[in-house]
Each structure stands twice: as C-alpha cells, then as structure tokens.
Design a binder for these strands. Structure first.
Lengths: 266, 266
DNA sequence: TTACGAGTCCCAATTTGTGAGACTATGGCG
DNA sequence: CGCCATAGTCTCACAAATTGGGACTCGTAA
C-alpha cells in the first residue's frame, strides 16, 4: 500500500509517481544550484541526453528559473529569488516547528520549548508539556533573559565575543543576582558555540535544567531555538549528554524546513 | 533574431517548446506563491483537472518545493528558500546590470552609471560612456557623496526623514559649500521618494545633470541605482522628464533580475 | 582553413502524462 | 447520531507529450 515500494533513497533520483518531466526539470535546477553549469556537464550529471537537458533548461530559462550566459553556462534565475523571498514570508516558525516539538516531547517525556530572539530577550513562542508531572513556570509569549536560559543561550551561538559581553552586562544591570560570573559564563558560551548546543544548569529557575539547540535558515542565520527542560532529578549529566543528539537532530530537522542545508558554503 | 516571436505575455500560460509538465508544475509553484492554496483552488486557477494538479503538487511536495498542511493547503517549501539563497549568491549586480546599462546608454546617447551604497557614500561600480563628446569626471571605484549625486539620492529613496537629516548633516561637515539648503533638500527628497526617481541638477558637478532610479531586490530593498548623466545643454527640464520613464524602466528590468516583483506585498 | 565544442533543432517511436471518476477520510450540520 | 459536503487520494485506458538519435549552425581555437 505504500507508494513505490523500492524507496531506497539512493542518490537524489528516487522513483516517483508520474511526473518525470517535472522531477527532471527540478533536478536540473538543483544541479545548477552548486554553481553555473554548462549543458554537457548537466546532461552527464543527470544522466540525460543533451536534447532532453537542453529542452528542460530552455524552458526553465524562459520561465526565469534559470539564467543562461553564453560561454559560461546556466545559473539560478530571478524567479528563484522571488519565490525564495515569498517562501520566507509564508513560513512561520511556530506552525512549522510544532509537530517536531510534540514528537521530541514524546520521545523524551520532557517539556519542550520554542523561542526566538526579540530584541535583547528570548521570546517563548511554543511550549509542549511533557509526560512527567513537573510544572515549568514558562508561558507562551513570555520574555526571558538570554544569558540564563537554554533557549536564550542557543540563540546566541553565533554572537561575537563583544556582543556576548554586552548582553551579559546589560542583563546584569536589569536582573542582578545571577550566580554565574562573567568570565565563567563567557567560557561556557565559547564551549557551546563550538559544540552547537547549550545547557541551562538551574540558572534561570531552580531545579530546572535544559538542553537547547539553534534553528537556522537558508542563510545559516539563527532564527530560533528549541530546548528540552526537566527537573534536575531527571536531568543528571549523563542524561543531558544523551539528549544533545536528539535536540540537535530536531533543531536540524526544523532548520531544513527553512532551507538550511548543512553543506551550504559561500 | 528575437526569441519566440509571438511572445504576447497574456496571462502566465504561453505556448512553449515541449515541456508541458515542467511548465505546469512551475505554474503550480507560482500560483502558490501568492499565498497558501487548496487543491481545488489551484486546479481551477490553472485550468487543470484535480488529478493532474494533485500529481504535480504531490511531486513538488516530495521534492520539498512545496509544503502541504492538511486543511490549510499548499505553501512554498524549504527548497525554494535554499535555492533562493543560493541564487542570491550567484548574482552580482555589475555583471547582470552591464548589458542594460549599455542598452540605456545607446538609447539615450548619454553616459550611464551604476552605483551602490557603501557605508555613507555612493560607490560607482560601472560606467558606460555615451556617444556625445562630453567627459564626465567620474571613475569606476570612486566614492561620491550621497546627497548631491543622482546615484546617491536614488539610493536614499527608502530612507527615513531622520536618516536623511543625518546624512545631510554628516556630509555638510565633510564637504561644506553645497548650495542646496537642508530644508530645500529634504523637500526635494520627499518628492523623489514619492515618485521613485531622483535628479541631480548640477549639484555635484558643474554643468552636469542626471536622472537616476533605484534597483531593488526580491525583498524590495534598494541594492543599487543607475543614472543617466549629460551636459546641462542637452539636459533641459523637458528632456529630463522624458528620461524618467526610460531610467525607471531600465532600473525595473534590472530589479526583476534580482527577483523584485512590483506586486510583492506583505 | 579545418576541427572542435557548445548549443539548437527536427522527427518518428513510444514512454509518459492525462483526466474521468471511483474511493476514502474528515468535519459540519440538521 | 448519522448524513452530506468537501478535500484529498488513487486507478486505468487512451493519446498526447516527451524522448533521444542525430543533423545543423555557430563561433573559437589550432
């Protein structure tokens, strides 16, 4: 009852339901994505004849999905810029992320949060309650400090040293009494930045620990973050270590909905 | 020598060389661009049967060019974000614009410039000499003031009142002796902002007048500008008025290479 | 000049896409 | 509580659209 039983994801070219021409055309598109290509390169890369490739490419050019520059090759066209931009307007993080959050919550049994950066605070956009009987005192729409929450720290993973200092000091002014000193905090943040995740070790709320990771868009910019939070009794160091992969994995899956591809290099 | 003689751009569905399925699929894509659509809407809008539309859409979803949300409809997918982003990396203004500049220069007989904003100055990236025997003392790579050049003013057409004042005052400090007063200048800029073009009335260089217009990207941001410059003797008010449409037209054509679509509304 | 590579075009064979409609699932309404 | 309406999914026989071999045209390099 599955569609196309032999769905072994070989290498891009999976067998699909009746739209060969469309699929091939779009494959041309993605083949060109990695840099301008000439017709023979394309036809070889896709395993198509020159005729077919040419017809496809010509149509894509006429519809402005590709540019053609004689003696240079085909490159991505304006229509993709246009659609890409419109796509980013249509996406919205909470809607796209929600299902992933639910799934992560079920896998871990813990409460999962989604947040974005709102000026100099972390703004909580979604919360999926875990199965354990622990209440976490966060609410959707609430703004929390960046420096002491998992969500917040994950949002800072691309910030410069200077920017981090700035934030730490601003928040110290606004909320005194944070128990991690500046040097120590910066040290930890550097570690998190290298590793691609962040912890909250009962810093923001007593007895609550979190594992968090950033969500990125097509430009690799951090557009949000997720965290798994639990009572310290369930969150010993060993378990937090285990959660890292799951949290990064889920964040990565959401990121790829926003066009992020781990192999995007300038 | 033209491509496709009968190119009356009726309404999306133009007849083209052998790739119906591809074209239809891409039409589905652009139909979804204007907001999430349900299957029946799509099939009616494109004049296709439900079956066909569904097959196309399904394939687009599998390739991540579309998202499907039950009970909501189809929306643009992550792959478009990804390709849009890559496309913007492949584009570069001078290369894309050059041919348009040459064409505009030939049409008008005047010298045409291309510039971008570089911090608080206008940076000249390209210059196409006109047919008249007039030397204009600009050079590619040169940085000029924003407030007194056509190129510069066109770059400011989206700036706020506050930002304009700031720039005027900064440049007054750097280059005293500009003959247009602040109030007058702001007044003119407001007029230009409303109209979508800008003049340089011998402000930057004696006896030289320009007509300029901005180039926009998919997000409607101003990414550069072009200007037609000529000796004042050839550039009376009447001729400048006539040039406006040509300059705006050329700027618009370049803009559309960058995914700008005049009908892009939030 | 010849040779070559890249792009363009043509046409018969047939693979592939098409559309009518049956079928399923889901939510709203009487 | 069950029935209708709506949205989406799937199948199949037919025919239309796509395919690819190869010929043709440029323009550049040798």
């Amino acid at each position: 009852m599955e569609n196309a039983g032999e769905g072994s994801a070989e290498e891009g070219t999976v067998r699909m339901a009746g739209a060969q021409t469309l699929v091939r055309g779009l494959e041309v598109l993605t083949a060109v994505a990695h840099g301008p290509r000439k017709l023979p390169d394309l036809s070889e890369a896709l395993g198509l004849t020159r005729s077919t490739t040419h017809r496809l490419a010509t149509n894509l050019v006429e519809l402005r999905f590709l540019n053609f520059t004689p003696r240079v090759g085909y490159s991505l066209g304006p229509k993709l810029l246009e659609l890409g931009h419109l796509a980013s307007r249509q996406m919205n993080l909470p809607r796209v992320a929600h299902d992933y959050l639910v799934q992560l919550s079920q896998q871990t049994g813990d409460t999962v949060h989604l947040g974005i950066r709102d000026a100099d605070r972390a703004l909580y956009l979604d919360k999926v309650q875990g199965s354990r009987r622990i209440e976490i005192s966060s609410r959707i729409g609430e703004r929390q400090p960046l420096r002491s929450t998992g969500i917040g720290k994950a949002l800072l993973l691309d910030d410069s040293e200077q920017s981090l200092r700035q934030i730490y000091e601003d928040e110290t002014r606004a909320f005194p009494g944070y128990r991690v000193g500046e040097a120590e905090w910066l040290e930890r943040m550097h570690q998190y930045q290298k590793s691609g995740y962040a912890f909250d070790l009962e810093e923001n709320e007593d007895r609550i620990r979190c594992v968090a990771a950033p969500i990125r868009d097509a430009g690799a910019n951090i557009i949000g973050s997720i965290s798994v939070s639990g009572a310290a009794q369930y969150m010993d160091d060993a378990r937090m270590k285990l959660l890292i992969d799951q949290v990064i994995g889920t964040a990565g899956a959401i990121s790829s909905e926003f066009g992020w591809a781990s192999n995007t290099r300038p």
